[in-house]
């Protein structure tokens, strides 16, 4: 118990440092790599906190696919971030006020790992007790995702499909618009 809480402490501090570095670094390729490191650290923390399935997904999707997408976009748009002359004081003030309010809210939260916290006493024990009887699967997370909440997962597939169609529609129209531009240019020249 005590060892895993110290590992968690160290990883979480690394995570905060990476987050601050993302804000400071201006080179966007470096920022994309930092966000990959951020996801990988997050996945390690999920393993320490016993969420192994979530860690798998975060490592594959967050550190893998997101970083590749980001690098693909950077290859098109270039990696310079302009130094903006906007004053950072107002956003900083908003962020600090919101953060202080949220930290004030944490005093009422159950302490880390408390087995008697309300989250652990309501429905979770029933799932842990009955999942193997109902579904025959030892992995409770998979059982809830694919069996108890199967329709929700189907809806999630719908969300991903919609996003995929949206991306395809946005990106496939660029060739036609380019052609239109070229056509109008050639008409202008003639």
């Amino acid at each position: 118990m005590s060892l895993e809480i110290y590992i968690d402490l160290i990883l979480v501090i690394f995570l905060a440092i990476t987050g601050i570095a993302v804000i400071y670094v201006r080179n966007l390729f470096a920022v994309a790599m930092l966000s990959g490191i951020y996801s990988l650290l997050m996945a390690s923390i999920f393993v320490v906190l016993d969420a192994v399935d979530v860690a798998f997904t975060e490592a594959a999707v967050g550190a893998g696919i997101s970083t590749i997408l980001m690098l693909g976009v950077l290859a098109i748009t270039g990696n310079r971030e302009k130094v903006s002359n906007k004053s950072p004081i107002l956003p900083l003030l908003i962020v600090i006020c919101t953060g202080a309010l949220l930290v004030y809210g944490t005093w009422d939260l159950p302490i880390f790992g408390d087995p008697n916290a309300p989250v652990h006493t309501h429905v979770a024990p029933e799932y842990i007790a009955n999942t193997y009887k109902h579904t025959g699967m030892p992995n409770i997370v998979t059982a809830v995702l694919a069996s108890y909440r199967g329709y929700d997962t189907l809806g999630e597939v719908g969300v991903i499909f919609t996003a995929g169609v949206g991306v395809l529609l946005l990106l496939s129209r660029r060739k036609t618009t380019n052609k239109l531009n070229q056509k109008s240019k050639s008409e202008d020249q003639s």
Binding site: M1, I5, L49, D50, A51, V52, F112, G113, D114, P115, A117, V119, H120, I128, T131, Y132, P138, N139, I140, V141
Partner: peptide, 13 residues
């Protein structure tokens, strides 16, 4: 973090 129980293991029976 909310889901962690101290002394518990990953929810695989």
């Amino acid at each position: 973090t909310f889901g962690k129980v101290s002394g518990g293991t990953a929810p695989i029976l």
